[in-house]
Amino acid sequence: MAMHVNRRTALLLASASAMSLATPLAAQDVRLRLAFIPQENPEKLLGDIEAITGWLTSEVGVPVEGFVTIDHAAAVEALRNGDADISFMGALPFVLAEAEIGAVPLLSEVYRDAPSYTGRIFVRRDSGIGSLADLRGRNIAFADPISESGYLYPLAEFVKAGLIEGPTAADAFFGRVFFAGGYQQAMQAMAEGLVDAAGASQYADLLLTPRQQAEVTWIVESEPIPSHLVIARPGLDAGLQDRFIDAMLRLNAPENRKKLRYLYGPDGYVRSDSAAYDGVRDMARRYGLLE
C-alpha cells in the first residue's frame, strides 16, 4: 500500500534529517574506543592512556576512551566485536587481523627517522652465552606468540642458523619457551635470571632500569621489520577516522612531541603504506599463520 506524505510532514522530515546531519558527533553520543597492547608495564600504561585520551578528546571532538587488552589476539577480537574502534598493533597481528576481519592500517610509528626496527635476542652479560647455539636446552621468554619482533623474527634467526626448522621445533631445542605478555615482562624475566634469554624489540632494553641495561646485551639481530602501527576496524566512520589520523599526525609538531611518551614512545607517526608489510605477510605464510 502506498504511503501518502503531505507537504508539511515532508518538510518536517527534511528538517529533522538536516538537523541530524548538522548535529556535532559529540552531541550524538559518538565515542572512539582505543585498544592498547601491554608491551610495557600495564600499570604505567593505564596512566599513559588517561593522559593521551584526554588530549585526543579535545583534538578529535568526541570522547576518546582507552583500555589495555591481555595481548594482541584480544585486541583483534575487540576490533572484531566492535568493543574497540582503533588499536595499537604490531605488524604481524595487523596482517592477521587484516586477513581475518579486514582491519585497516592508518598510521605507522617512526623510530630514529625510519618506519622500521628489528628484533633481538637479549642475554645477561655474565651468562656466558655468546651465540644462538649456546641457548640449546636453556629457557627463553618471548613477548607474545603473535608478535613479530617479540617472537617470529627473533625465532627466525634460529631457523637461519640451522638450529630449528620452525616454531613447532622450538620446544625441542630450548629447555622451556615462555610467553611473558609483553616486551618489558620478557626483558625483566631475563634480567632477573628467571630465564636465560629474551626475544624482544631492539629497543626493549630501554624498558629496564639503568642498572639492568648495563647488565644485558644482545647476541643476534633480525632483519628489518616494518614498525608498529595503528589500525581501525572495518566500517569505522570515515570522517571520525580522518579526524583521528589528523590529530595523531599533530603529535609530530614540536609543541606536541612530548606527548608521544604516552604512546609507547615513538619519534612520531606517518600514514601507513600497506605494501610495506608484504614481507611480514610472506613470513606469516611461511610459518603457516596465513594461507
Rank of each mutant, 00 (worst) to 15 (best):
P24M: 10
P24Q: 11
L25S: 10
A26N: 11
A26M: 09
A27T: 03
A27W: 15
A27E: 03
Q28M: 09
D29I: 06
D29A: 02
D29M: 05
D29K: 13
V30T: 09
V30P: 05
R31Y: 13
R31W: 13
L32N: 12
L32A: 07
L32V: 08
L32Q: 12
R33A: 11
L34M: 13
L34G: 06
L34N: 11
A35Y: 00
A35H: 04
F36W: 14
F36M: 02
F36K: 09
F36L: 10
I37Q: 08
I37H: 08
I37E: 12
P38W: 09
P38S: 00
Q39F: 05
Q39D: 15
Q39C: 03
N41F: 14
P42D: 09
P42C: 12
P42Q: 04
E43H: 14
K44L: 14
K44I: 04
L45H: 12
G47N: 15
D48G: 07
D48M: 10
D48S: 05
I49H: 05
I49A: 06
I49R: 09
E50N: 12
E50L: 01
A51N: 15
A51W: 13
I52D: 05
I52P: 07
I52E: 02
T53C: 13
T53I: 05
T53L: 09
G54S: 04
G54I: 07
W55I: 14
W55T: 02
L56H: 02
T57L: 06
S58F: 05
E59G: 11
E59Y: 05
E59D: 04
E59W: 07
V60M: 04
G61N: 07
V62I: 11
P63C: 04
V64M: 07
V64T: 05
E65H: 00
F67H: 08
F67M: 14
V68Q: 03
V68M: 06
V68P: 04
I70L: 15
I70E: 15
H72L: 03
A74Q: 09
A74M: 04
A75P: 06
A75K: 06
A75T: 14
V76L: 07
V76A: 12
V76Y: 07
V76F: 04
E77T: 13
A78Y: 00
R80M: 00
N81P: 02
N81C: 15
N81H: 14
G82L: 01
D83T: 12
D85G: 03
D85L: 05
D85S: 08
D85T: 00
I86Y: 01
I86W: 00
S87H: 07
F88V: 11
F88M: 14
F88T: 09
G90M: 08
A91V: 06
L92A: 01
L92K: 00
